[in-house]
Design a protein around this nucleic acid. Structure first.
Lengths: 264, 264
DNA sequence: GAGTGGTCTAGACCACTGT
DNA sequence: CAGTGGTCTAGACCACTCC
């Protein structure tokens, strides 16, 4: 049995898909839609909940409900790591010409805005375990919010470095120097650290309240969380926790396999 | 301002976290909870919606609402690909001893159950594009559902192979031969194909109706979708679409970086 | 201040489970 | 068939946006 709210959602979805309602158009108001579809307000709202979860409409409190932009999915490709590493030895001008974020988003540099915020903190349980150091180890916590002009942030990253590792280059503790040409791998290179391996751990879950606020999404909206752990040989040198609205991102990973021996 | 349904959810969540309600325990019925928390039924249900989305409770229509098992997250590591490839040349007994799924889940082989279902189909738009062949190309579509005894399925995979590639080994078209010792890489090896690279594309989204049914989860529950594209040199040889309930899985990827040249 | 979406209520009826 | 959760209603009040 198909429910009333699903049927109602389907009819409105059809209006959008057919182009009768265009991107940015305001839907009729809730009382009007209730009338049109012969349902009560709660049922109508449940129907719109479905469309909102699908990313087809946005609700703006006090203003109206609007047909949403189909999300431009950002693509984050693991090849960015090798690409970034290859730039470590380039002169600054070359490194500055293009950053990973532009590559991911396809956006132009002049359309990108950064918010970077640095703090000196003591490693909590979780971070200490990730680095395999003692709790309370002094760290620098770097929070990044990046957005295209006129859009909500497309993701947040919180990166941790050991202060013991980066202390010899005070510029690394200064948020004013961000975005750093060449990214974290070049930053670590300035203190003699070469990143040799990166592990990514990926989960999908619902946003915490803080994340929802930072990314301007609903509480409990689905997000993808990626923890990037950078190693220099057998030592962890950076732990970066990234979070994106699930609908905004696609991750890609490439695994090259060694040729089989003893064949040909 | 915190809403009434959030406050109500928090109180019930606290009961679970504190251990006053144990895994498997039935919650008081909705009318009782309404009374206890002084809210209407719709508000109470919204509170329970939150807990259900967090995976803390399960609702069973007609039976009750119960404290859910904390999900055992399955970990799928990209190193499985190299591991599988290294086994291609091993004798069957060795290959059969242990499969990727056991490695991912940590489950014992005797506790795992498979449902495999093969069909011969013509490539649709999407699959044809992924293989870079013409639409209508004959393919074998292999659907896998795997579960631990007594649990709902933990994931579904739909794999496509070109019939032109595998025709020389009819055993590959027979679902009765699954699970195949050594997995897909060994299967392809039997028809002279060596997998040299694997690309994974990952999205988080909500479950389709078919997926929700197959995985025994709610419609629109969040899932992780992973498309694995296997290449033999510059030719696509398998496209496998995996889907897991988002709360049940963590993905891990390892990227090794080449040493920087001209240094030391 | 008029109009929008967000929350909440008290009650009804239905579908499903277990005995 | 008694009791559970699932859906739906008609109305109320509130918070927010925009004129």
């Amino acid at each position: 049995m198909t429910t009333k709210f699903e049927a109602c959602a389907s009819r409105i979805r059809a209006l959008i898909d057919s182009g009768r309602l265009q991107v940015g158009d305001q839907l009729p108001t809730e009382p009007v839609l209730c009338e049109e579809h012969g349902v009560s307000r709660m049922t109508l709202r449940r129907a719109i909940d479905v469309l909102e979860a699908e990313g087809r409409v946005v609700r703006r409190h006090g203003a109206g409900t609007f047909v949403a932009d189909p999300p431009r999915r950002l693509v984050r490709d693991s090849r960015r790591y090798a690409w970034e590493k290859n730039r470590v030895l380039l002169p600054e001008a070359d490194r500055a010409a293009r950053g990973s974020t532009e590559v991911d988003t396809g956006a132009e540099r002049h359309n990108l805005r950064w918010h970077a915020w640095f703090e000196e903190v003591l490693a909590d349980n979780d971070i200490a375990a990730a680095f395999d150091v003692d709790e309370g180890e002094p760290m620098v916590r770097r929070t990044y919010l990046s957005r295209e002009v006129g859009s909500p942030p497309f993701g947040r990253a919180i990166s941790h470095l050991r202060i013991a590792d980066v202390r010899t280059n005070p510029a690394l503790l200064d948020a004013e120097r961000e975005p750093w040409p060449g990214g974290t791998q070049h930053q670590l290179w300035t203190v003699g650290i070469e990143v040799t391996r990166i592990d990514d751990q990926i989960k999908a879950r619902t946003a915490t309240t803080a994340e929802a606020q930072a990314l301007q999404i609903r509480d409990n909206a689905p997000v993808i969380a990626l923890r990037k752990v950078s190693w220099s040989d057998d030592r962890v040198v950076e732990v970066a926790d990234n979070v994106w609205p699930a609908s905004n991102i696609e991750l890609r990973f490439t695994t090259h396999l060694e040729p089989l021996k003893g064949t040909d």
